[in-house]
Amino acid sequence: MTSVPHRTAKKLGLVIDLDICVGCHACAVACKEWNSGGHMAPLTDENPYGADPLGVWFNRVHTYEAGVGGNSRTVHFPRSCLHCEKPACVEVCPTGASYKRAEDGIVLVNEDLCIGCKLCSWACPYGAREYDYDSGTMKKCTLCVDRIYNENLEEAERVPACVSACPVSARHFGDLGDPNSDISELVREREGYDLMPEMGFKPVNKYLPPRPRRNKVGDTGAPAALDSAAPLSATHGAETSSNPLLRWVDRALSR
């Protein structure tokens, strides 16, 4: 029986900082690379060198513009499974192939049970499910379950591939169920939000919103403009105003 566990011991997940994501796709490709040989391998690519390539990706990076005109904001937006607390993808799955782990909350697919009915992908509002036409099974982000606990990796490497690759550190991994974890702290501090909370899926992953721009007078403490340098000593008197260079005449400077 795979109905969703009431509570999970941990709520492992990702926090993605939209304020600093530069949209480099490193997370997406690193994910593809790790997982191509990982728990859900392969991430099949159909027609890879042809007219209409179609690949399985667990993480995809969108680029949006928000707002209009010169004040619009370009926001890069990586999207992968949010490991929801109430994942309809699991509820709708007729076979039990989709499940949520009680120990850490990771939502996974057991490919050997999956019949490829695709219903879970219909049930997921976040587009996190990826059907592999070739294997006939549903695949998805595993939260790198085969990395984060992997004893064959050095301790520091036991984080999701996307997190370890992200060059700007826009991705964070941790236990969002523990209010004292660094990542929970970060979410509180930066007012991390849920995607489409109205769906009621209670995503574990959080997004940190873009912070306000600092592009107005006063934002850095500098005045709106520099004052012209004060006129020079009386010795130069009237000349100063006509020749601004004279202000540097009397500087005693040594090399």
Partner: peptide, 16 residues
């Protein structure tokens, strides 16, 4: 979908 309410109207510039 994106939760980017505060930033104004949202349009996709480039798909992944």
């Amino acid at each position: 979908a994106t939760g980017l309410w505060s930033q104004g109207s949202v349009r996709q510039l480039e798909a992944p």
